[in-house]
Design a protein around this nucleic acid. Sequence first.
DNA 1: CTGTATCCTACGTGATACTG
DNA 2: CAGTATCACGTAGGATACAG
Lengths: 126, 126
Amino acid sequence: MEPTHLHPPVRCRMIDEVLSLIGDKWTIYVVVMLGQGKRRFSELKREVDGISQKMLTVTLRGLERDGYVTRTVHPTIPPRVDYELTELGRDLLVPVRALGDWASRHEARVVDARIRYDTRLAQAAE
Amino acid sequence: MEPTHLHPPVRCRMIDEVLSLIGDKWTIYVVVMLGQGKRRFSELKREVDGISQKMLTVTLRGLERDGYVTRTVHPTIPPRVDYELTELGRDLLVPVRALGDWASRHEARVVDARIRYDTRLAQAAE
DNA sequence: CTGTATCCTACGTGATACTG
DNA sequence: CAGTATCACGTAGGATACAG
């Protein structure tokens, strides 16, 4: 059966699973970064831009728990921890990138729509 | 140029546009609902399950602002307001559904991964 | 280097009451 | 019916300090 054709309540529950994944501020960024290959903690910290150490840890733990990434500790000094997408994680990258690509193609239209909406609002206020 | 192949910082900004859209709790649900056709306020309120009146209003305003839905007021008594996806909104439905379908296909694996992770954690704690 | 622990703030969200 | 306004709360998330 095609999930797309399930009735509304069921679809919502399905989507809920994804939302819990991408609903937070950083998960998608981290997944996309790891999509370019294995990364260590400090590399991600540097690359994911504004992320705090705390949120990177929290995000990675969540991804590990859900089976999207593996965490490999190298018992060296100083310690080194590598994070890598699992097959499931790499698979997730496909729809996530589709969404990202869509966004990049339609970004301008959204920005335009916002400007028009805000302008209309401001005029109505006068 | 294929957006998928842009370098990391650019991709992140693109994804950011989508995240601001789907980052909140209700937007996706409402979009999916409207994907099945025009709806009035009270119908959405009933169908989107746990949503409050306030959040439905907020969500719809955001979608309208971004150009994903149109808002049509019928000056009748009692008032009637119809919401409908624009072409942009219907277009967005494609990658959103792809993500939903992916979730429905892989839901079980994520649940399994969580159970395994939590079990391992609990054992390690003993 | 890779975390964990604690505190603190801001914001999203819900409940409730009111309006056109 | 379709909102708006106000309050009250919980939690996400940042800053900081500390640990292995």
